[in-house]
């Protein structure tokens, strides 16, 4: 998180954000489930200009027996950014950031998947960032949990994620890349909303305790809204399938 460059204004005089949102407002969110033919489950998610494609294969036989567990399924997860997803081309080789985020996202999904139902199998989760504009890990979790549901894998709850930023002293929901870059803190959160269980929690930046609790509350507001949209997208895919075209 950089120091604010002079001349960069992240709020209008009316207190709106550079993209016209109020501090507690999400970006326009688009969710589509079952977008790929071959994957067992898939989902496409947009948080504004952050665009994510998630696919799930499994439960399946990985070929390599040594990674199987006798009492549960093994989860594998890849978070990856497309070379064209960033302002400057990103090398397709996995960066340290992508290695960490693959782990953090896997651990955000592990608590939701009923892995005990599929011993000696592997479930592969692939998250591809097609365009990055902030909040890619949380949008990735949102997309991946839908892809798991689309694959028919039993889950305790969906997982919905969103980030809260602190920008020029103001807490903002679902920050975009500019706000993240010039902000003072970034708090990505993902949770199983019905169970009120937090499955991903990270903080990059500095917050007081009071700010942290307020930011977490704001994250919950966003998560609950996204959760609603997730369920609508699943219903549209399954309950309303015949009505379409």
């Amino acid at each position: 998180m950089g120091i604010l460059k002079p001349g960069i204004k992240l709020f209008t005089d009316e207190g709106l954000r550079i993209d016209g949102r109020r501090p507690d407002q999400l970006r326009p969110i688009k969710i589509e489930v079952g977008v790929l033919k071959n994957a067992d489950g898939s989902a496409y998610v947009e948080y504004g200009n952050t665009k994510i494609l998630a696919a799930v294969y499994g439960p399946r036989d990985p070929g390599a027996r040594h990674i199987l567990l006798p009492n549960r399924a093994t989860l594998r997860c890849r978070y990856h950014m497309a070379p064209f997803s960033t302002h400057e081309r990103k090398s397709p080789a996995p960066s340290r950031r992508e290695i960490e985020l693959s782990k953090v996202i896997r651990e955000a999904l592990e608590p939701a998947v009923i892995v005990e139902a599929f011993p000696r199998t592997v479930i592969d989760i692939f998250i591809e960032v097609l365009n990055a504009d902030g909040g890619t890990r949380t949008a990735g979790v949102t997309a991946a949990s839908l892809a798991l549901a689309d694959a028919g894998i039993p889950m305790r709850d969906l997982v919905a994620g969103v980030a809260v930023g602190k920008v020029q002293g103001i807490l903002v929901l679902d920050e975009n890349e500019q706000e993240d870059m010039y902000g003072e803190a970034d708090l990505p959160v993902a949770a199983m909303p019905t169970l009120r269980e937090i499955t991903l929690l990270q903080l990059n930046g500095v917050l007081t305790e009071e700010e942290f609790y307020k930011a977490l509350e704001l994250a919950w507001q966003g998560i609950n809204q996204i959760y609603k949209l997730q369920k609508e997208a699943l219903k549209k895919r399954y309950a309303g399938a015949e009505e379409e075209e």
């Binding site: 937090i198 991903l200 990270q202 903080l203």
Partner: peptide, 8 residues
Amino acid sequence: LITGMQKS
């Protein structure tokens, strides 16, 4: 101040 956080 809280300067970082990670659930794992």
